[in-house]
Write a protein that binds this DNA or RNA. Structure first.
Lengths: 300, 300
DNA sequence: CGATCTTACGGGATTCGTAAACATA
DNA sequence: TATGTTTACGAATCCCGTAAGATCG
């Protein structure tokens, strides 16, 4: 049993209930008076009840009309509220974006991007997960992130991967270290020096292991955080090699960073999103800004 | 800014969100699939967002579609609830009637009528005001009663009066009273006997005063309630004259009631309702039953 | 008789269903 | 290639506005 009452009929009813005059109420809906009359009649027929007692001199609500008035007003208000809510989301006046990003991006490159985003769309809430690549992917897969920036490609078929940027590796060492001023830097030159490694789960480490066999490295220690690497290097315990996007950690007095021109030693950052699933208006807006603000390909 | 989204569009949207298949969802609305497709498209255009990601193999909600789904379902539920509510009232499954009736009618004639009414329409609440005629009219005038049964006509132009029934007067006295067996009863025969009167505000008294000048009466006492009149008469203090509709008070052992064949001494009961104001479905139903159950014109 | 609602009716927009075209796994 | 959506298009329907008719104070 479905009653396809239209919102127009409701609006007509409310207008007439307020104006108590067909001609004026019709004008308010930008309708001719007979057309308006038909609209009221159709509503009455649909409900099976007269809503107005009317003659040429007076228009009054019937008891049923009276009790229907508040109902109709509430329904219309709910309706309009719901519609403006949708429009607000579409217009990016409101909404929420969730993204998952590698910690290295989250600390260095991301903040100014989000700052600009927030200035553009102050009504959109932001939800950032600064987690490792595997976790990034999982969050996109489960839907808890709209998209992600990670260092690995997605494997599952419901995800879509696109290259976001390339991230070249740099040597980091003390300014008084011999390599700081060496004319040429080759990977095997570095191998002999005491080296501060990141944990094997990090993408940085995986790239390094792929480029230089671990056996050839003079690994001094393994730590979890890049900030720790920096501390170790600054105190002269060893050197390290990190991607360009993490260099902000090493912009410290007494430290030197030097690009490595090594073929194949380039970390790729990927943007991961669900396939066959469009982004929300808010997520699309962030996606576009993120793509526009890609780290310079020449960085490093 | 009014968005005339129709309930059909909402129903189409919800059907598709649930079925995730245009063909099946179209069938559910008894529509051809292309017509259904157009309905969805029109909704998406109106809202300015795609609500479904679709290809020939899969139909999925977009993020906007997802958040719109609960909104649409709630709106439709509210809508349908409001509509069935109206229909329930029209079908007399629910509702309320308020009526105002003279106490004499309220105690004797009314209860079985309301009993039948309640059996017919168990969902309709009843509101009875058993008050004197003036008060009956005032309640109709103010809208707190849908209609009234009173002993006076309405004066104000917004009220409409119709004759409901005629109520003949009867002598009430003890069985051992001389008048109980008198061959003929004339008004002047009664006048000499001690008489128990009702208060001047009662319609019964007003009729009597109009028929027999008070000076000609042997008034023993004035009381407010008919039940009191009965008690006085039963104890032999005097006689009285009351309308047929109140005789149930006097159906007591040792009491006699005898009709008075006096021209002009007939109380009229009127039904009063607002002019130019239709009755609610519930009130109309009671009105019709009340008219069908009019006290027999021959009563008395 | 004047203001106002209803009825009558022709034209135009909307919406429908059928059939063909198109897309994807 | 099979399934399922979109496009194309003629037909039916719905809805509007103008004009005439009816009604009440």
């Amino acid at each position: 049993m479905q009653m396809d009452v239209s919102t127009r009929q409701l609006r007509a009813f409310v207008a007439l209930a307020q104006q108590r005059n067909f001609t004026r109420a019709a004008a308010r809906l930008h309708l001719s008076q007979p057309a308006f009359s038909a609209l009221i009649r159709s509503l009455e027929e649909l409900l099976g009840v007269r809503l107005f007692d009317r003659n040429t001199r007076k228009v009054e609500l019937t008891p049923e009309g009276e009790s229907f008035e508040e109902v109709a007003q509430r329904l219309l208000a709910d309706f309009d509220h719901a519609m403006t809510d949708v429009r607000d989301h579409v217009a990016r006046r409101r909404g929420r974006v969730s993204l998952a990003v590698l910690p290295s991006l989250a600390a260095g490159w991301l903040p100014p991007v989000l700052s600009e985003f927030h200035a553009l769309y102050p009504g959109i809430d932001l939800d950032v997960a600064d987690v490792l690549s595997e976790d990034c992917l999982e969050r996109v897969r489960s839907g808890s992130a709209d998209f992600a920036l990670a260092a690995i490609r997605a494997d599952s078929p419901e995800l879509r991967t696109e290259v976001f940027c390339s991230d070249r590796f740099h040597l980091v060492c003390r300014a008084d270290h011999p390599l700081a001023t060496a004319p040429v830097l080759r990977l095997r030159d570095l191998a002999s020096h005491p080296f501060v490694q990141l944990a094997r789960t990090s993408s940085v480490r995986q790239y390094l292991d792929a480029a230089v066999h671990p056996m050839q490295m003079n690994t001094l220690m393994e730590v979890e955080q890049l900030a720790t690497v920096m501390g170790m290097v600054r105190s002269g315990l060893g050197i390290s090699v990190v991607p360009a996007l993490t260099l902000f950690h090493f912009e410290q007095p007494g430290l030197v960073t030097r690009p490595l021109q090594v073929a194949g030693l380039t970390r790729r950052i990927f943007l991961i999103r669900r396939r066959d699933r469009s982004l929300s208006a808010a997520a699309q807006a962030l996606y576009e800004l993120v793509m526009r603000k890609k780290p310079d390909e020449q960085a490093g």
